[in-house]
C-alpha cells in the first residue's frame, strides 16, 4: 500500500513542461476579463447585479463583500473593474509563485463575487471559469508565457519551466467531468439513440439562444445533418470516460498493461479534442450562449501531451526565427552574382 501510495505521489508530482499552463492561464484570464467587461459595457450589469433597491429587478443575496462596501452602482462597478484588472493581470502573468497565486486568487474571488451574485443570470461558463480560476490559484501559473518569466529569464517563454503533473490532471479532469456529466444528464427522448434525434434542431430554434433565424435547418438534408449531430454530440459527451482513459494511458509512466498500450496506439485523444473544437465552433457560430465555447477551449491545452505541445512550440519558434532572421548581406568586395556559401 505504502509503495503504491509513494508511486502515486511521485506520479502526481512529476515535472512536465509548463507551456500548457501558460496558455491556459492567458486564455482563462482573457475570457474571464472579456465576459465581465461585456456585462458592463452592454449595460446588462445594472439589470442583473444591482439590487432591487438600486434599479435591479430582484433582491440579491447578501455577501460579506457587498454588505461591507454597499451594493449600489459604485460598489458593483468598482468590483467589476477590479475583477477585470485582476483577470488581465493574471493573463499577463504578473508575479512569481506567491504573488502570481495572490493575483489568481483576486481574479478568482472577484469573478466569483459577481458570477454568484444573481443565480438567475449565470451561465455554465461562469461555473467553468470560476473552477478554472481556482485551479490556476492552486497551480501557481506564471512559470512561462508571463511577465514573471520575462523578468526572471529575459524571455516571455521559458522552455525550461515545469509544473507538477497534478496541476494538469486537475484541469483535464474539470473539462472531462463537465462533458461526461452533461451527457449523462441528456436523457430526453430527443437526445438518446432510438428516439427521433431532434434535440439539436429544436435547441437551435429556441429564440432565447439562437444567434440567427435557423428555420432553414428544416430542409430535409440539413435536418438529417442535425440528427447526425445530435447522435455524435451525445455519444461524444457520454463516452468521455474513454477520452479520460486515453489521457491517463498516454501520460508518461502510466499503464504498461495491455489495455493501456492498446489505448495509446489509437488516436482517441486527437479525435475527441478535434470533435470538441468542431462542436464548440459550430455552437459559437449558431448559438449565442455567452463565452462558453471560448471558456471550454481555454482548457484544451491541458489535454495535449505537454511534451508534444513543447515540440510544436519549438518548431513554431524555429520557423519564426528562420523567417525573421536578417538576410545574409554580401560583403562589399564580393563580385556581383556571387553566392554566399
Amino acid at each position: 500500500m505504502s509503495r503504491r501510495w509513494d508511486a502515486l505521489v511521485t506520479w502526481l508530482h512529476a515535472p512536465e513542461p509548463a507551456l500548457w499552463l501558460g496558455i491556459t492561464r492567458i486564455a482563462v484570464g482573457l475570457v474571464a476579463a472579456h465576459a465581465l467587461a461585456k456585462t458592463w459595457w452592454t449595460g446588462a450589469a445594472s439589470w442583473v447585479w444591482l439590487d432591487r433597491a438600486h434599479g435591479g429587478y430582484r433582491g440579491l443575496k447578501a455577501s460579506i463583500w457587498f454588505d461591507g462596501i454597499g451594493d449600489g452602482p459604485l460598489a458593483v462597478e468598482g468590483t467589476l473593474a477590479a475583477a477585470v484588472v485582476a483577470c488581465l493581470a493574471l493573463a499577463l502573468g504578473v508575479g512569481g509563485p506567491i504573488v502570481g497565486r495572490v493575483v489568481a486568487l483576486l481574479a478568482s474571488q472577484s469573478f466569483l463575487l459577481l458570477a454568484d451574485r444573481n443565480s438567475h443570470a449565470g451561465g455554465s461558463y461562469d461555473l467553468l471559469l470560476s473552477a478554472a480560476l481556482w485551479l490556476l490559484v492552486l497551480a501557481g501559473p506564471t512559470q512561462t508565457l508571463s511577465l514573471h518569466a520575462r523578468r526572471t529569464t529575459g524571455a516571455w517563454h521559458d522552455p525550461e519551466a515545469t509544473a507538477p503533473r497534478w496541476t494538469r490532471l486537475l484541469v483535464a479532469w474539470q473539462l472531462m467531468i463537465m462533458y461526461a456529466t452533461t451527457g449523462w444528464q441528456k436523457v430526453s427522448v430527443h437526445w438518446v439513440p432510438g428516439g427521433d434525434l431532434s434535440a439539436l434542431y429544436d435547441i437551435l430554434q429556441q429564440p432565447t439562444w439562437s444567434r440567427y433565424d435557423l428555420s432553414w435547418l428544416s430542409h430535409p438534408v440539413l435536418y438529417a445533418g442535425t440528427q447526425v449531430g445530435t447522435l455524435v454530440t451525445w455519444l461524444w459527451e457520454v463516452l468521455t470516460p474513454v477520452w479520460a482513459a486515453w489521457w491517463l494511458a498516454s501520460t508518461a509512466d502510466v499503464g504498461e498493461g495491455r489495455l493501456a498500450r492498446a489505448l495509446r496506439r489509437l488516436p482517441i485523444g486527437w479525435v475527441w479534442a478535434g470533435l470538441g473544437i468542431v462542436f464548440h465552433g459550430v455552437v459559437h457560430l449558431l448559438m449565442d450562449i455567452g463565452p462558453f465555447s471560448w471558456a471550454s477551449l481555454a482548457l484544451y491545452a491541458a489535454v495535449v501531451d505537454p511534451r508534444t505541445l513543447a515540440r510544436w512550440a519549438n518548431r513554431g519558434a524555429n520557423r519564426w526565427a528562420t523567417r525573421n532572421a536578417p538576410e545574409t548581406v554580401s560583403a562589399p568586395d564580393s563580385a556581383p552574382g556571387s553566392v554566399a556559401g
Binding site: S108, Q109, F111, L112, A115, S124, L127, S130, A131, L133, W134, I177, M178, T181, T182, Q185, K186, V187, S188, H190, W191, S198, A199, L200, Y201, D202, I203, Q206
Partner: peptide
Amino acid sequence: GSWQSWKMFVAP
C-alpha cells in the same frame, strides 16, 4: 468556485 452543475440543454 468549484461548484459542479452541468445541466446543459439536457432536453430541448
